[in-house]
Design a protein around this nucleic acid. Structure first.
Lengths: 192, 192
DNA sequence: CGCGTAGGCCAACAACCGTTGACATTCGAT
DNA sequence: ATCGAATGTCAACGGTTGTTGGCCTACGCG
């Protein structure tokens, strides 16, 4: 069980495995679930389509393995209360531009019921707890987190998926300056 | 060329034609472009798939004919300046709940390049002119209209497509009370 | 009554999809 | 060097899709 490379348990198949995952992320992000065919993904990864089946069972399994999202949301309690809005917008833009996983998830979530459920899970398990940290009334946390989600996902939608020219042209600082106060208000302002 | 019914030039085929369009809207809204098959649409309309081709040429033609969006945006100059945000949010919710066309367009626009272009056109031809009416500096109108689009489309996305439970559960008045000031600020507040 | 034509149906095509199983190759351990 | 398991290739299946062309039917006009 000795291996030659540094990382532990590095099998030879991990290379192709990762190649498949990378190609899958790219295709899912670019084409959505239906149009991202296993054949195309396999060709991008320079292997046979049947390898995809061997490694991931079926197309759903491939999608589940390729799109694993960790928003890495910071602990907002360590920040000044006034900064959480801007910090969240900045962090989300980082996440969306880091790789194509979030774009893939959004493209799939819109047409695929399973993808939609996946997004609901991320909302519930990752964004909602953060909202609970900073919301004045914890009972309002779900509604406030949902409001934040509308604004942040709306930005991602128009900017990274639909590519409305003025939304694409927004500089990072502009986006943060405009959306930061909105998110801040949704999280911490008293109910209107 | 005389016709029996009241409306002018009412051909017999208009009935099936409209049945096809209604079924197409429903399917596109529920399933997106790829999974809304011509066969399923034809079955819903209780006619043969080949009829769809005869009337609309091909699937793209059907989509183009089925999804024709008029946001019917009101003239905001006739409203008190402080009300335009709330009025816009209210109007958008009306539009989204009036029929399934907007949901269909969003579902398709996310995975289909042609659908995305269609949405860009609606943004440019319908929302942007309204922004020009109320923006302090007309040169900022595109950016401000884009910001409004992020918030309104984000709401529609989470509420009508992804169906995040807290977003679905938001009462109309709550949504307007929260998003109204946001839209108002994006349109009329001085640049941050 | 006869007939042209618009409206509608049926069967089929070619392409593509996810998926499968049999076969070849290569690697690692003995 | 040898054998077994891991890794990869090839060809094919069954099903679905958009799309096409030929055939039937029934209406409206002379």
């Amino acid at each position: 069980m000795a291996e030659s490379t540094s990382s532990p348990q590095a099998k030879r198949s991990d290379a192709t495995r990762n190649a498949i995952l990378a190609a899958a992320r790219e295709r899912f992000a670019a084409d959505g679930y239906e149009r991202a065919t296993i054949r195309a993904i396999a060709k991008d990864a320079a292997i046979d389509p049947s390898m995809v089946m061997r490694y991931f069972g079926n197309k759903e399994g491939l999608f589940a393995a390729a799109v694993a999202v960790d928003l890495k949301l910071p602990d907002l309690r360590s920040l000044p209360r006034q900064e959480v809005g801007r910090a969240l917008v900045n962090h989300f833009l980082d996440m969306w531009e880091e790789n194509e996983v979030l774009t893939a998830l959004l493209r799939v979530g819109v047409t695929n019921q399973d993808g939609a459920r996946r997004m609901q899970g991320i909302f519930r398990d990752q964004l909602l707890p953060v909202a609970r940290q900073v919301c004045p009334d914890p009972e309002q946390a779900p509604a406030r987190a949902a409001l934040v989600a509308t604004q942040l996902l709306g930005l991602a939608l128009t900017r990274y998926v639909l590519r409305f020219p003025p939304a694409v042209g927004l500089a990072r600082e502009e986006a943060v300056a405009w959306l930061g106060p909105t998110v801040q208000r949704y999280l911490t302002a008293p109910s209107p």
